[in-house]
Write a protein that binds this DNA or RNA. Structure first.
Length: 417
RNA sequence: GCGGGCGUAGCUCAGGUGGUUAGAGCACCAGAUUGUGGCUCUGGGGGCCGUGGGUUCAAGUCCCAUCGUUCGCCCCA
């Protein structure tokens, strides 16, 4: 029989890696809560419409990366969510959260995109995200970016990433600029690369960050966004930059930073790394004031970001400067049959006292100690005939190569020191 | 979706121009060690050489396809 394996582009995360995954989620949750965000959970399946308009029909995610399902009884189309910001907006409207602004929400969970797999790019991957709804002050943009910064710093990754920011302006500025770009690039169309010809149709702003040399040359002569930015857009962005300076967060203004999703406006940013090949973005987001109105609700100003948990996990694994929390754990070894039940009771009691305890029922003492040593366990508790006769156990401190007898009744107190 | 590299033991990898029973290190198991782990030594188990087809007297090795992975493009977390 053929060996069963995971489907393309998805992965198991075994305990050896999961500890890093958990470190990312725990650290991110901790920091989100320090900023006043509240956790919530969203479904993995949604109606297609939740994403279609907000992300844009022509976006890659909608046009070619959706996992679709059929809802059997109604024949309606269901999709596996490709991201969660639109889900948040849907949930926000569904439950009337706009009546209690602002809302600070965070979530994490799997997302699905039908892409060509690569290192750091999976078809099922996990994102951790925060969304701040009901705020228009540019300093709040900075506040949320600083949460991302603090998270990366807490993970010991601040030297692995760069912060890139840009503004997409308001709708009017952006469409004026877009028009100017289209006019310009139409006039030099013959010099554009094949990819950029497509971009000209789908997302002309994208031509600006083309890696093609010919495109880049043409871009030098292209209209500049600055000339089309409205006064308020400019002020917004200046204030964001100023806020970052106030908090001492280094950034690079990349005027060609564009997001592929329609719902973004004004500030967009990404923390990106060079250590993951072409999958550089580890934590990215921006402002999306119009998102709720795409769904038929009142417009609500909002700012948020999402981080790729697996990408951060990979950086963490490589970096090694991050200290994983390790609980002190104990292994209990009954040396003969008579010791089994007393040992079991001891283990139960210690667990109730808050210790992590494993019982090793079988094997020679040497084998069992060896197992504990390999598992990096701190303390072994041994009980054989000798100990039982005096109502004690042997406590072995594996890291310190010493052991001493301890009374069973006062064991928990003894170990807590 | 497009172009390139790579798939040999659980892991990391050797296996010139095709030629006996496919190797190493680490890991695993057992013993040296019948109440004491780490160190050392000795032995052992493990392989449809990713899969399918083809060329050949003969394929881990060459060819084709396919799947997976990886790098770049695209895109993105």
């Amino acid at each position: 029989m053929k060996q069963l394996r995971t489907v393309r582009g998805v992965q198991d995360i075994l305990p050896a890696q999961y500890k890093y995954f958990k470190a990312v989620v725990d650290t991110a949750s901790l920091w989100a809560e320090r900023y006043g965000f509240k956790a919530m959970s969203l479904p993995i399946i949604e109606k297609e419409e939740v994403f279609k308009r907000p992300l844009g029909e022509t976006s890659d995610i909608i046009s070619k990366e959706m996992f679709t399902l059929e809802n059997r009884d109604k024949g309606e189309k269901i999709i596996l969510r490709p991201e969660a910001t639109a889900s948040i907006a849907r949930s926000f409207l569904q439950h009337g959260l706009q009546h209690n602004l602002p809302q600070k929400l965070y979530y994490w969970g799997p997302m699905f995109r039908y892409e060509r797999p690569q290192k750091g790019r999976l078809r099922q991957f996990n994102q951790f995200g925060v969304e701040f709804l009901g705020v228009d002050d540019p300093y709040q943009d900075v506040e949320i970016i600083s949460l991302g910064y603090n998270l990366l710093k807490a993970l010991g990754l601040e030297n692995d990433v760069e912060l890139h920011i840009n503004t997409l302006g308001d709708t009017a500025s952006r469409s004026a600029f877009r028009e100017a770009l289209v006019t310009y690039f139409q006039s030099v169309k013959s010099g554009l690369s094949e990819d950029s010809l497509k971009r000209l149709e789908v997302n002309p702003l994208r031509i600006l960050d083309s890696k093609n040399e010919g495109d880049q040359k043409l871009c030098q002569q292209a209209p500049k966004f600055d000339a089309y930015l409205s006064k308020t857009s400019k002020m917004h962005f200046d204030r964001v930059c100023n806020g970052l300076k106030i908090l001492g967060i280094k950034y690079i203004h990349k005027s060609n930073l564009v997001r592929g999703l329609d719902y973004y406006c004004h500030t967009v940013f990404e923390f990106s790394t060079k250590k993951l090949g072409s999958q550089g973005a580890v934590l990215a987001g921006g402002r999306y004031d119009g998102l709720t109105s795409y769904m038929g609700g009142q417009p609500v100003e909002a700012f948020g970001w999402a981080a790729g948990i697996e990408r951060l996990m990979m950086l963490l694994e490589e970096n090694k400067t991050f200290n994983l929390k390790k609980e002190r754990c104990i292994g209990v070894i009954p040396l003969d049959e008579n010791a089994e039940i007393p040992c079991w009771k001891i283990a139960q009691k210690l667990r109730q006292e808050g210790f992590s305890v494993d019982i090793l029922w079988k094997g020679t003492m040497g084998k069992r100690l060896k197992k504990l040593d390999k598992a990096n366990v701190d303390i072994a508790i041994l009980m054989g005939e000798d100990e039982q006769s005096v109502n004690k156990v042997m406590i072995k401190f594996l890291k310190e190569s010493r052991q001493e007898l301890a009374s069973i009744d006062t064991l928990a107190a003894f170990l807590k020191i």
